[in-house]
Design a protein around this nucleic acid. Sequence first.
DNA 1: GTCTATAAACAGATAGAC
DNA 2: GTCTATCTGTTTATAGAC
Lengths: 178, 178
Amino acid sequence: MVRVNTRDEILRVAAEQFTHSGYKGTSLQEIAAAVGCSKATLLYHFASKDAILHALVAPAALALAGLVAHLETVDDAVVQAAAIDGYVDLVLRFRHEVALIYDVIPQFLQEPAFDTVRPLTDQLCAAFAGRTDDPGNGIAAEVLLGGIAGVVIDDDRDAAELRPALIGVARRALLPAV
Amino acid sequence: MVRVNTRDEILRVAAEQFTHSGYKGTSLQEIAAAVGCSKATLLYHFASKDAILHALVAPAALALAGLVAHLETVDDAVVQAAAIDGYVDLVLRFRHEVALIYDVIPQFLQEPAFDTVRPLTDQLCAAFAGRTDDPGNGIAAEVLLGGIAGVVIDDDRDAAELRPALIGVARRALLPAV
DNA sequence: GTCTATAAACAGATAGAC
DNA sequence: GTCTATCTGTTTATAGAC
């Protein structure tokens, strides 16, 4: 099989399969078939199936950490708008990967390896809610965070079409009416 | 094991496990352990693992069909508000079950057994969008439908607290500003 | 780096005793 | 109606040749 970089190709295919069928619902067999190599080759490049998942999520988690760090420097008055724009861009850029974090593998969020991700999503949720204590705002933020991630997985439309619609619905739902 | 109704107990436990770990991520072994019986007992009450899932989703799908049928009789001007109220009530009533349809098993929506469910969710989505052709409205409806289902799974708060918050965020996001 | 072959564990499902 | 024991296929992962 002629291929530029087998490792990257494995990650690309795994991201597709994991988001489509779930982590548990995707076997190494299926990934290998789609890549065009053997299971053994997969496990030469990655120590385990879990390692593939972690390699996949790591860059997205890093970008998420960057967004959250940036939001900490933003003033309360505009933090919601900044969080919405940043999150929509992030989720469209890591379409498969960030979506995984929110939708496909909730059980994995409780694993030790994801201990760094959970506080980040909590902070992002707080930013979406406008850093208020009102539980209603928190619930609204959860709806939008999860809903946006879900659409990005399931919807076939491209980023250019989704971006304004996603930002629009989040603003209407979360920002005070003008 | 003293138990009122083993069949119902299996369904109750399976709903919990499926929503928490996913369908593929939950084994008959684990369900049996949580119920306090053997795998064989599970398969005495249900023909297969699939049969458990179908028994679980059937009442929710029926209720969903009822909601969609009711919405067809509702005037365009108020269909969004009616759809929001009806959906939030539905998803809180069948907290595990309807949530399963939207969040845990996207791959199952393509199975023949779910051929009846897919058109229902499409119609519900159209009602959420206010029966317009604007793709932006459609995307917003998808965000809210999926986001609400996701919150109902993950959030521990009870229905009384969630209901007004969920209806509120959906109205702000979807209904024209007054 | 990639392969075939295989190990070891686990899945869903069945048989038959009680 | 529930159990133990077992069958059969599939899973992740390893061993070793090329």
